[in-house]
Design a protein around this nucleic acid. Structure first.
Length: 589
DNA sequence: GCCGTTTTCGGCCCGACTGTTTTCAGTCG
């Protein structure tokens, strides 16, 4: 096994371009130049193919959206030398650590620069010290409230690093929505923002409501029992912090603006910018109040923002239609080509939970699951599945009670017994087989050959060098009996980093050997993640969406996997377990 | 700095709120 060259990955390239933009912002550069760096960073971050692969293939980087001559040069430099000279130069003038300060509430580029130039503050720690000493409120443009806000922000930062997993947000928001809906004045309330786009983690929650008595509803909102602190509370906008430290914003809008507000607050920002630009070209102005015809005689600087003839706004569909587009599913609104696809009429017909005909990874009491084979079977049948795969762990995963060959044969006897009583659903004989250090599998070949579907995955040696890890996975996929690579990166959101490996090479191998890759639906994993699933789709590798359930109720986690699949533009045809049983069996061979 | 069924130059999304102000900059979403 050889160690491949260590490339600068897309996320690192994106981060550095973003840092250049932020440093330019602090410097006071042309804001559109700043945005150019942000846009290029986003392109790189969400681009499925690694930049180093494009450079190696001799591709013209300026074909990428938001990448012109300069950005192409920057990307090329990072790929070939590992450095970005424009960032190095800027860092000499402005400390890079000021970027951390911008992320504090109440601190933007201007104030960060002021704090640095007036007080010599370069880091969050230094800022905390001078703020505690009362030096910040003395600065021009600052005051006592700003100083307190900064200190509060630093305290919050220390308390909670990272964002909320989508499933945690779901659990926290459900009771609040019920509370709001119980108020007689609330006609409608929905969640917008990244939550509605089903981004894997959310920073805060945006609620949108139509209400008769806005003041009373806002009152009801801020007195929700789990509110820890009320940040603001106005006539149409309020912000609270829940006891879980989740920030929730509520906006109350008139019914005729509801669709426009929902569209606007769902975002993403990049999607909205592109959408509004399209509207401008049609002589329209889009805001959260609606779509308006622009009066060509009026100076846009001085015109009332709500002036002009309203042409749409009550529903989202009307807002898109006014700009000549069909309604776009929220999961696609990331400015990853969805507006162009909408224009061409080629938006994908996205996969749904209802299209799933089976779940291809779950555990029973035979290893580390909490429910018996029969209980899991009944749970799957209750969810309307045609089939499911029982994938208990293999022997090397001792802590889970993994099965050796003898135990697996015993399990098969129980399976025969259970399935004889339950003709309503097909149980596929399977196992989640560990990939060992050298890429060999933790189950005898003659047993693998008797499985209906063989799932392999890594549970150990997460920190091998990338080249070694890649070779290990590739060897496992080359095994003739293997059908699915489960949770390919091994990441645990907010807990464990993904393993280092060459995804491109692994997908090529999967394609060559007709192996599917899993999109693990468990909200702790969501592995592969959306942008990686895009790469699999583009390379023609089939995807499996599985829950990895360890108890019956976890079978309902399927929706999280499907939602991420939708973010990756997957249609049913891309997903192996949307196939009817006979077609699935034929594919598995 | 990017980009083009109005444009290769002159644009680049939109509005609200807060705090620090005496008419508005800065931040936020």
């Amino acid at each position: 096994m050889t160690q491949g060259p260590s490339y600068v990955e897309n996320d690192e390239i994106a981060r550095r371009l973003m840092d250049v933009g932020l440093l330019l912002q602090i410097q006071g550069a042309n804001p559109f130049r700043v945005r150019a760096y942000e846009n290029a960073a986003r392109t790189v971050e969400t681009h499925a193919t690694p930049m180093h692969a494009l450079v190696e293939a001799g591709a013209d980087l300026t074909d990428l959206p938001a990448v012109g001559k300069d950005m192409a040069r920057h990307i090329h430099e990072m790929v070939t030398t590992g450095h970005l000279s424009v960032l190095d130069e800027l860092s000499k003038e402005i400390p890079r650590t000021l970027i951390d300060m911008i992320r504090l509430p109440g601190v933007g580029p201007k104030r960060a620069k002021k704090l640095w130039q007036s007080l010599g503050v370069q880091t969050i720690e230094q800022l905390e010290a001078v703020a505690q000493a009362g030096a910040v409120q003395e600065l021009e443009g600052f005051g006592l409230k700003t100083e307190q806000r900064i200190l509060q922000g630093i305290a919050n930062l220390k308390q909670r690093q990272g964002r909320f997993k989508l499933s945690d947000a779901d659990a926290l928001i459900g009771p609040l929505l019920a509370h709001l809906r119980a108020h007689p004045g609330v006609q409608r309330v929905e969640v917008a923002g990244s939550y509605r786009r089903r981004v894997e983690t959310v920073g805060d929650i945006d609620l949108l409501a139509i209400a008769d008595d806005a003041e009373s509803v806002m009152d009801h909102f801020t007195t929700f029992p789990r509110v820890k602190r009320v940040e603001k509370s106005g006539g149409t906008r309020g912000t609270v912090i829940l006891s879980s430290d989740l920030q929730v914003d509520l906006r109350i809008v008139p019914a005729e603006s509801y669709g426009a507000a929902l569209q606007y607050f769902t975002g993403s920002k990049a999607h909205n910018v592109k959408f509004r630009t399209k509207a401008v070209a049609r002589g329209l102005r889009v805001s959260e109040y609606g779509v308006f015809e622009v009066d060509p005689d009026q100076d846009p600087e001085t015109a009332d923002p709500r002036s002009g003839r309203r042409v749409a706004g009550d529903t989202e569909a009307s807002v898109y239609a006014a700009v000549g587009l069909p309604w776009i599913p929220a999961e696609l609104r990331e400015d990853r080509g969805e507006i162009a696809a909408a224009e061409r009429g080629t938006l994908p017909s996205l996969v749904t939970v209802g299209a799933m005909r089976g779940d291809l990874q779950m555990h029973s009491t035979w290893s580390d699951g909490k429910h018996s084979i029969e209980e899991m079977l009944v749970g799957c049948a209750a969810r309307g599945y045609e089939y499911f795969a029982l994938t208990d762990h293999s022997k090397s995963l001792a802590m889970t009670g993994g099965l050796d060959e003898v135990a697996l044969r015993e399990q098969w006897r129980e399976i025969d017994d259970v399935t004889a009583r339950h003709p309503e659903i097909r149980l596929l004989r399977s196992m989640e087989i560990d990939i060992l250090r050298d890429g060999s599998l933790d189950l005898a070949d003659e047993m693998i050959a008797q499985l209906d579907i063989a799932v392999v995955s890594i549970h150990s040696l997460f920190d091998l060098p990338s080249g070694t890890q890649t070779a290990r996975i590739v060897k496992a996929l080359e095994h003739a009996g293997v059908h699915v690579l489960a949770h390919p990166t091994g990441r645990l959101i907010n807990r464990r980093e993904p393993i280092a490996f060459d995804l491109d090479a692994v997908l090529q191998c999967a394609k060559a050997h007709n192996v599917a890759v899993e999109l693990n639906a468990h909200p702790n994993r969501l592995d592969l993640k959306d942008t990686q699933v895009v790469l699999a789709r583009e390379m023609g590798v089939r995807v499996v969406i599985s829950t990895d359930a360890h108890r019956v109720e976890e079978l309902d986690l399927m929706r999280y996997g499907v939602e991420q699949a939708r973010r990756a533009w997957l249609e049913p045809a891309h997903v192996l377990n949307t196939l009817p049983l006979p077609a699935l069996l034929a594919t598995l061979g």
